[in-house]
Write a protein that binds this DNA or RNA. Structure first.
Lengths: 168, 168
DNA sequence: TTATTTTTTCAAAAAGTTTTGAAATTTCAA
DNA sequence: TTGAAATTTCAAAACTTTTTGAAAAAATAA
């Protein structure tokens, strides 16, 4: 496969995967393009390469910067801003996990804490079912929280190495 | 908080969370309702409780059954079908991970294998950047694959217990 | 059987999300 | 300063996904 074709495949597939991962298609495509670009690109480069509008490009670059996945690069002597993606994939995964944890898991745990305090006699079958479900989720949720925090801080090899020891 | 209100909160929040988790809102709401129901419910119960149409209810119940999260229950002497959700949350998490891995991670790994075989001289900067990105992803992806497989098979306490030992 | 109830399907409508592009704002070199 | 270039904003349009509901199919009791 030729490089140009491979790049295109990569960008379009990463876009499709992104949609399953809480990231919209364009955002994922811009990310993919920057990941496989040897040098930083301008907004115009990205617009042209992906055939998307200026507004769309701008909004999604900004979102990628918020996630910490892309950074603005100022090249001396250039008027335009350039953008480049974090290339260390393990760092990328940690950034994504960190962001999604903050947006999804943390609010869920907060909610479960509130819901566990439902009024009523726990010997009542319907109360029991509710409380048991909520408590079960809270337990698993807290464990996931710890595990993910560990992962966010961990070095790639430490983490995987440790896990691998467990199955031997 | 009263049980009725708590249930409603739980259902509506689980619905909202679901949308971040590759599960549509109604599917997640039906799942939530069944999780906190002490007894199996019929399609009509679900329609009424969530104010949704018959078709919508039917399609989403079917999808929940496909994921293994809900099962059909036949009660003797009853004409209608009843539905109940798997209540063991650790099992629920494993089922969701299993399904999402199959739909998302497995195809990604397949794609990366193909893309790694791009033609050209790896001393070429643009080829190198592409191959490095793809290889990096493949490495992390394979590790995630193993870790998730382990998790899918693992007992809750074995898995978490082992992880916890590592941070002490 | 046949009639009635229950479940399933699917085209069209509604709802939700993303994208566009032109106007407003900001930046910066001269 | 000023004006050209670059960036940002956001309402409307395009697109995508979900939901509805009525009709078809399947299941079951009599």
């Amino acid at each position: 496969m030729k490089l140009t074709e491979a790049k295109q495949q990569f960008i379009s597939s990463w876009g499709a995967f992104g949609t399953h991962w809480g990231i919209n298609r364009t955002m994922a495509q811009i990310h993919a393009l920057l990941l496989v670009s040897a040098d930083p690109l301008t907004q115009d480069d990205i617009m042209e390469e992906l055939n998307i509008s200026r507004g769309n490009t701008n909004m999604n670059i900004r979102e990628l910067i918020n996630w910490g996945l892309v950074e603005r690069v100022i090249l001396p002597g250039e008027r335009k801003e350039f953008f480049s993606a974090e290339k260390d994939i393990w760092k990328v995964v940690r950034l994504i996990v960190k962001e999604r944890k903050k947006r999804e898991l943390d609010p869920l745990l907060k909610l479960l804490d509130q819901l566990e305090e439902v009024e009523g006699d726990k010997r009542d079958k319907s109360i029991k079912t509710f409380v048991d479900t909520v408590s079960g989720m809270k337990r698993i949720g807290k464990q996931a929280d710890k595990t993910l925090d560990m992962m966010i801080k961990a070095d790639e090899h430490w983490f995987v190495g440790s896990l691998m020891k467990l199955i031997k």
